[in-house]
Amino acid sequence: MKKGISKGAIAARASREVKDGMYVNVGYGIPNLVPEYLAGRDVFVHAENGIIGMGPLARKGQEDPDVVNAAKQPVTIVPGGAIVSQSDSFMIIRGGHLAMTFLGAFQVSERGDLANWKGPGDGIPGMGGAMDLAVGAKRVVVTMTHTDKDGAPKIVKECSFPLTGRKCVSLIVTDLAVIRVADNGLILEEVAPGFTAAEVQRATEPALTVSPGLKEIAPP
């Protein structure tokens, strides 16, 4: 079977949504890779646990247990970074002070509903900061695999998993495609190298409108 782009390439493509001067947040999973592609950019990355100006992961031997990201991994703080309490961190999130957030997902609906906290496994669900980010960030970009482990579409007409937020997703970046959530449905903007629009449609439940400017996802 043909393969889409790697998780790193998904994060790299998503990182291109970020413009200089932005304050952006990243969640767990693939989004956690996004900061690695923002190094050297004039951008501040916010981590929900209270860092503004999060840098790349700490190098081995240079970990500081007092400096971790939302996934509890040791990270670095860039020059000009700042530390805030949880209260201020979620004021930043809920209050609309972030230009963008990158979140993972179990499912996204054709209206941009997001389900990312209670999935198929029998683990104990927890949403962490995702519900606040879904309502508070100016733009929600989802990075995920296009289908689940069984090949079922994760872009669906209606989410079957409990929602994180309603009509909150603006853009979906997957291993197969870049899809924009518009008022009148989903617009297929980009496809992974080697994939056609028809192949992406077959892996997607709702109908996609192919953008007149359809192009290939550029490599990292």
């Binding site: 979620f90 669900p125 927890g126 508070g136 929602l163």
Partner: peptide
């Protein structure tokens, strides 16, 4: 299990002597 922003704002409310707060977080969920 509650949203993280709601968790810390509920704690802040208790600290600040407030009776509660309205939040858009969790609507439709």
């Amino acid at each position: 299990i509650i949203p993280q922003g709601t968790l810390n704002e509920r704690i802040r409310c208790a600290a600040a002597g407030l009776g509660g707060f309205y939040t858009p977080t969790g609507v439709g969920t």
